[in-house]
């Protein structure tokens, strides 16, 4: 058989993290034209959700909705039409902590809302409720390799099924004591709209392959700390290449013995 080329065109980017309020804001920083000044991530209230759901939405939901909407809006698409790949190391950490704390107490009557928010795919569920998207939604984890696993899944979906796909790679912190066992710098999310064919909105074409090469690092020590400090931020070298409109290979962290070589080219 002839392998299918694992490539897709990026049509929209969403970004939120410490010191990054959007992709347009982050772009000059990643280009090196402005200094990176880390500030705690600010998560907007998701206006798109009905009032009841909005109240219940935790950090991971707010992060997912904000980055996803930025990417879809930039691509000029209707979110309702897009299948999604949600990649996260561990889902909603605050909810997980609250449940474990109650289960260790004398009163184990956990709240029903907390329970349904505890599933790994909760943010993907809220995304589909908020946008009315009824297409397929995959939710996956690969611990620190979650961005790479999500990118691979999303590019393959776009290439094999010939469909636009929205990658939502988002991670938020656990509160203590879990934070001590799984430290995470801050909330960080990248959303990418990937299309099988080039179009008027295409920003760049990426092609993906497994690689044994070492992952690219970032020169700025604070940015490098961010890259290593949140699984979703392992995608930053790709965003830097996109910010520079720089053709060529980028190597992203993936599994402990395997990296993703991503070739960026103009569309």
């Amino acid at each position: 058989m002839i392998p299918i080329a694992l490539d897709a065109c990026i049509e929209g980017i969403g970004l939120l993290g410490p010191g990054f309020s959007s992709w347009p804001h982050a772009r000059p920083i990643l280009e090196g034209k402005q200094p990176y000044q880390p500030q705690p991530t600010v998560l907007p209230t998701p206006a798109l959700l009905p009032a009841a759901e909005r109240r219940r939405s935790g950090a991971i939901v707010r992060l997912t909705l904000a980055t996803g909407l930025e990417a879809v809006t930039a691509a000029g698409l209707d979110a309702a039409t897009l299948p999604t790949v949600f990649a996260s190391s561990g889902g909603d950490g605050e909810t997980c902590h609250a449940i474990c704390e109650m289960l260790a107490s004398s009163d184990r009557r956990i709240s029903p809302t907390r329970f349904h928010n505890s599933v790994h795919n909760a943010a993907a569920g809220y995304w589909s409720i908020a946008t009315g998207a009824m297409a397929a939604s995959s939710a996956l984890s690969a611990h620190d390799a979650s961005f790479g696993a999500g990118l691979l899944e999303a590019v393959i979906q776009a290439a094999v099924d010939g469909t636009r796909t929205l990658l939502l790679a988002c991670d938020t912190r656990y509160p203590q004591p879990l934070h001590g066992a799984r430290p995470m710098l801050d909330a960080f999310g990248i959303a990418l709209v990937l299309a099988p064919q080039a179009g008027v909105r295409s920003l760049a074409r990426i092609s993906v392959a497994l690689s044994a090469a070492g992952a690219d690092t970032l020169d700025d020590p604070a940015l490098e700390r961010l890259r290593l400090g949140v699984p979703a931020a392992r995608g930053l070298p790709l965003l830097r290449a996109l910010s520079l409109s720089q053709d060529g290979p980028v190597v992203l962290d993936y599994l402990d013995d395997t990296r993703l070589a991503v070739t960026v080219a103009a569309c």
Binding site: H120, S141, H143, A149
Partner: peptide, 24 residues
């Protein structure tokens, strides 16, 4: 961690290909 399952299985067989744990 959600990925513990696939990570364990991958390690058990000494696999070096793609891996992910789907959790929906």
């Amino acid at each position: 961690n959600t990925h513990s399952l696939a990570a364990f299985t991958r390690r058990y067989f000494g696999l070096r290909g793609p891996a992910a744990t789907i959790s929906s």
